[in-house]
Structure formats: structure tokens, C-alpha cells
Nucleic acid binder design. Structure first.
Length: 295
DNA sequence: AAGAACTCCTGTTGGC
DNA sequence: TGCCAACAGGAGTTCT
């Protein structure tokens, strides 16, 4: 599922259930996801209190007392669901709300001091979890190389132009590089490039002049990235196969895709009438309109 | 050293 | 209906 907007949506759902509560008990149902769980995972979490919950790139970061943080990545198919135990809690659709019934691929179950239960389900097991000292979060091997948050003020045309200076890699791959921008994924890169009328095949270097200054399109691309992400967050993310909000409801930004998944369809740009193409770039599908996404 | 390819694992989908 | 290949939102590691 998860690109930045989906992870942000999940964080919003988990926050009220986690923050201020303790992990009464934790069930770990297998030794690994994509990587092995840290040693003493269950022991370290049991009894810990959650102080805060934040997002960094596509990671959920649970700040615990004891100077420790739990980091969680949802990979491709990871999803959280919340089961409210309290009487009279409303029953959202799509989930069996019986905390004793285990579903396939429920790998971790968090039982909270409030009585709520949070389950992590991940069919493909591309997700992972780790424990790290909070004051060393930035040094963690998965965090130390992360680039800028695209919704931060610091992400602007100057920043992007400097990062793209003399780069020959295609724009698509450049924008997907988490060391440059942290949190962008395949869908939103395709959409942002479409909104900017930039070809995914263009060299990243086209974003700046020979002197390294941002071009006009560079500024537009920055704005497109921010707007597409914000709109997707407002829509609860995009549900393709796996993404659900934590109450089981679907995101609905997928209905707003202009190019993603629309191979063979007519371009939605005014008076364009081009046909959306799907190509493969570094092993991933890219969707774009060859007629209006030039340069 | 940058950029592309490969890899992990399972579920779904589309073609025949 | 069944079988099988292709494909899927990520990203660290290994190649060229």
C-alpha cells in the first residue's frame, strides 16, 4: 500500500489508540517479516507507554517511554486494523471485530491498556519493525540516508535543483530515490510528473540551468508534489489492493488518478486527447501521456 | 560512483 | 473452471 499519504493516514488512525496508552501485551506470531524482529521484541514493548506517534518518510515511529522507539514499515501489503473492545463501539465494515479470531497474516497483535487491540497484517511480509534508542533514531541504518520530507518548507525549487544538478538519471527514478525525497512512491511520482507536464524519461538535470539554478518547471514540480500529496492525505490515501485506513475504510484518492493505472485511456488534460502509456523504468511501471509530457 | 538489476514473499488478475 | 504467467504501492544489496 503505502506511500507517504497512506502512511500519514495510518498514523492518524493509530495515534488516538496508541498515544498515552501502555502496551499491556504484545503477540508476535512469527520470527520475522522482511527482516527478523529485534531480540526481546515482546519483552521490550510489554508495559511500555506510548508518548507520541509520528511519521518519517514511509515509516511509522512510535515514541515510547524508556528512551526507546518502535519503527514500523508497511512494505507493500502491510495494514493495521483497530479492534475496539469496548461495549457500544461502532463496528466499521470489512473486519471481523472479534479480538479472539485470528486472521491469516496477522503477524503482530498489540493489546493496549485501554482494552483496544491493534493488529498488523502483512500478506507479503515486505514490511518490518525495529526497536531503536530514541536519541539515535537519525543514526538508524534505515533513517540516516533519508532525504527531505516533501511537505517540509525546506523542500523548494532551490533544493530540488541542487539535488538534480548534472544528474543523468531519469526524472522518475530521481524522484523515487528516498535519499533525495523521503516518502514519494510510484503513484504520486507519476501523478506529479503529469501535473507538471514533464516526461518521466527526461534527465533529472533538466530541472536546473547550467548554473544550477531552478528552472520554471522545477518550481512547478515542487508545487505538484506537495499538492498531490496533500490531496491524497485529505482523501485518506489511495486504495489499490491492500491499503485500508485503520478503521477498515478505503482511501479514495485512486479515483483522482490522472495517469496511474490508466494505460490506454485518453489523457485528461484539456484538449490533449493523448493516450496514456505504460512503460517500465528500473523495473517499475510508469504511466504517462507521451503527448503532453514532453521535455 | 552512479545507475540499473535483482531480491525478498504471497495474492490477485488476465489470458488462454 | 482451471492453470499459469505477469504483476503489485518498497528499498537494501549487488551487479555493471
Amino acid at each position: 500500500m503505502p506511500e507517504l499519504p497512506e502512511v500519514e493516514t495510518v498514523c492518524g488512525g493509530l495515534r488516538p489508540v496508541f498515544v498515552g496508552k501502555k502496551f499491556k501485551s504484545v503477540e508476535q506470531n512469527r520470527p520475522d517479516l522482511r527482516f527478523p524482529f529485534p531480540e526481546n521484541f515482546v519483552e521490550c514493548l510489554t508495559g511500555a507507554k506510548v508518548k507520541d506517534l509520528t511519521r518519517r518518510a514511509k515509516y511509522v515511529v512510535v515514541h515510547l517511554d524508556r528512551g526507546m522507539s518502535l519503527i514500523m514499515h508497511l512494505g507493500m501489503s502491510g495494514r493495521f486494523s483497530i479492534i475496539e473492545k469496548r461495549k457500544g463501539a461502532k463496528k466499521p465494515g470489512n473486519f471481523v471485530h472479534d479480538p479472539t479470531v485470528k486472521e491469516a497474516h496477522d503477524h503482530v497483535v498489540f493489546n493496549m491498556s485501554s482494552g483496544d487491540q491493534v493488529r498488523y497484517n502483512d500478506a507479503r511480509r515486505f514490511g518490518f519493525m525495529d526497536l531503536v534508542a530514541t536519541n539515535e533514531l537519525d543514526k538508524h541504518k534505515f533513517f540516516k540516508n533519508l532525504g527531505i520530507e516533501p511537505l517540509d518548507e525546506g523542500f523548494d525549487a532551490d533544493f530540488l535543483a541542487e539535488a538534480a544538478f548534472k544528474k543523468s538519471t531519469p526524472l522518475k527514478s530521481f524522484l523515487l530515490d528516498q535519499r533525495v525525497i523521503a516518502g514519494l512512491g510510484n503513484i504520486y511520482v507519476c501523478e506529479a510528473l503529469f501535473r507538471t507536464k514533464l516526461s518521466p524519461k527526461a534527465e533529472a538535470g533538466v530541472l536546473c540551468t547550467k548554473a544550477g539554478k531552478p528552472t520554471k518547471k522545477c518550481g512547478k514540480l515542487v508545487e505538484a508534489v506537495k499538492s498531490v500529496l496533500k490531496e491524497a492525505i485529505d482523501a485518506g490515501g489511495s486504495t489499490l489492493r491492500d491499503h485500508r485506513q485503520t478503521d477498515g475504510s478505503l482511501g479514495y484518492f485512486q479515483h483522482s488518478f490522472a495517469v496511474y493505472g490508466r494505460e490506454g485511456a485518453v489523457c485528461v488534460a484539456d484538449k490533449c486527447n493523448g493516450i496514456i502509456q505504460r512503460i517500465t523504468q528500473s523495473g517499475r511501471s510508469t504511466f504517462y501521456c507521451p503527448k503532453c509530457q514532453k521535455l
